[in-house]
């Protein structure tokens, strides 16, 4: 079984909503990325979403846009990110790593080559924000063959036909975007999110992770026991900005995640 499959099976067994923190590779510092990933695991991460910086991140809000710009300014490239994942895997063979990014850099690198190298490095899943299922027929096959889960998104605006499409093509889990908006936006109607997540979990044969709008223990608690996992990105990326060095970033990461993990553990999943 894949690491992601194993992770969600374990979470279901434990009756707990998983925690997936997001950081942009190379931010707040390229020298500290690998140690930061380990710190996230110590803080309670069940899986990690690692952002691959892009010059034009059209689905991202100001916080992650700025993280992308900082990482690019420091020369972070795809090959480097794969090396970091490989290095992380030397000490952690259990925590799934999901890479998140946009299509153009992957195509420039070569999708086939990327799939092979990412799999070899120990990458488990991939989210490509601007690759819709309709345009992803070739990519789906390539990543499936490489043993990497291609994870698709669903949104509040997605109707039954979209859900069916993703059900047919997606693997690993489905990323449910909790709101109409960009990363870092505020969610105001958690009960609607819970309702939609419950129906998606019934309809899809895949776990459902919820992202966008989760910023702290309080908002995470809104989904505890409801979603298979929650993704927390902008608030964490923003919090890590106060780190004065790599060591401090690790401490901050653990500090930030611990209460969220507690909030998620407090309520057993249905």
């Amino acid at each position: 079984m894949s690491r992601l499959g194993e992770c969600f099976r374990h979470l279901r067994g434990a009756g707990r909503t998983g925690l997936i923190p997001f950081v942009t590779a190379g931010d707040p510092s390229p020298t500290g990325t690998v140690d930061l990933l380990h710190a996230l695991v110590r803080g309670g991460a069940d899986a990690i979403e690692l952002g691959m910086p892009f010059s034009d991140p059209m689905a991202d809000g100001p916080v992650i846009q700025a993280a992308n710009e900082r990482a690019l300014a420091r020369g972070v490239k795809l090959a480097q990110i794969l090396t970091w994942v490989q290095e992380f895997r030397q000490r952690d063979t259990k925590t799934p790593i999901i890479l998140m990014g946009y299509l153009n850099p992957l195509e420039c690198f070569g999708v086939q080559k990327f799939a092979h190298q990412a799999a070899a490095a120990g990458v488990d899943g991939l989210i490509v924000v601007d690759l819709t299922p309709e345009e992803a027929r070739a990519e789906t096959k390539i990543f499936q063959e490489a043993g990497i889960d291609l994870i698709f998104l669903l949104a509040p605006t997605s109707g039954p036909d979209r859900v069916a499409t993703v059900k047919g093509l997606g693997s690993g889990f489905v990323y449910y975007v909790s709101l109409r908006g960009i990363t870092g936006a505020t969610q105001e109607d958690w009960s609607a999110v819970r309702g939609r997540v419950a129906s998606l979990r019934r309809e899809l044969a895949l776990p459902v992770a919820v992202g966008f709008g989760i910023r702290d223990a309080e908002t995470a608690a809104q989904l505890a026991g409801e979603a298979d996992a929650v993704v927390i990105g902008s608030a964490l990326v923003d919090y890590l900005q106060r780190a004065e060095n790599d060591q401090a970033a690790q401490v901050l990461a653990e500090q930030f995640l611990r209460p969220i993990r507690q909030a998620l553990t407090a309520k057993e999943i249905a």
């Binding site: 690759l131 309709e134 998104l153």
Partner: peptide
Amino acid sequence: AQGHFGIYGGRYVAETLIPA
């Protein structure tokens, strides 16, 4: 019908926009 001019065009956007 899907907006392709040969290999070009298409729809490469975040899922939220697809219904719109």
